[in-house]
């Protein structure tokens, strides 16, 4: 259930219908993109693929945010708390539940 890996869309294809040719460091396969097409898919996008189907479009900004946050670990506590806002992902736009002294 869990082996899903990031792959880059090389091109959209007609077979399968709703298909794309994707690549993972030089290995290519056709996958079905029906489940991510509603978000809009174009060559150059990255998707998460599992058993020949794309499940999700990868959000680069979120990836970089995460890495930046981790890089900040070990810096001052205040800086850490500042970026902690990025951890919250609630449905309502910013009901920030914690406030720090």
């Amino acid at each position: 259930m869990c082996l899903a890996i990031p792959a880059k869309i090389l091109s959209l294809v007609e077979d399968p219908v709703h298909g794309a040719l994707v690549e993972v460091v030089g290995v290519r396969r056709r996958v079905d993109i029906s489940l991510v097409e509603p978000e809009g898919i174009a060559p150059g996008d990255w998707v998460l693929i599992h058993v020949g189907f794309a499940l999700s479009k990868i959000r680069e900004e979120d990836a970089y945010d995460q890495l930046r946050m981790l890089a900040a670990l070990g810096e001052t506590e205040a800086a850490v708390q500042e970026v902690e806002g990025y951890f919250e992902d609630t449905a309502e736009p910013h009901a920030k539940e914690d406030s720090y002294p």
């Binding site: 029906s34 489940l35 991510v36 097409e37 509603p38 998460l48 499940l55 999700s56 990868i58 959000r59 680069e60 979120d62 990836a63 945010d65 995460q66 951890f87 919250e88 992902d89 609630t90 449905a91 539940e97």
Partner: peptide
């Protein structure tokens, strides 16, 4: 609380198209 560490890939609301099929 519920938190989403895997934000680059997991949408909070899930994948509507997948749930529909």
């Amino acid at each position: 609380k519920v938190e989403n560490q895997y934000r680059r890939v997991v949408p909070w609301e899930g994948n509507r198209a997948a749930l529909k099929v």
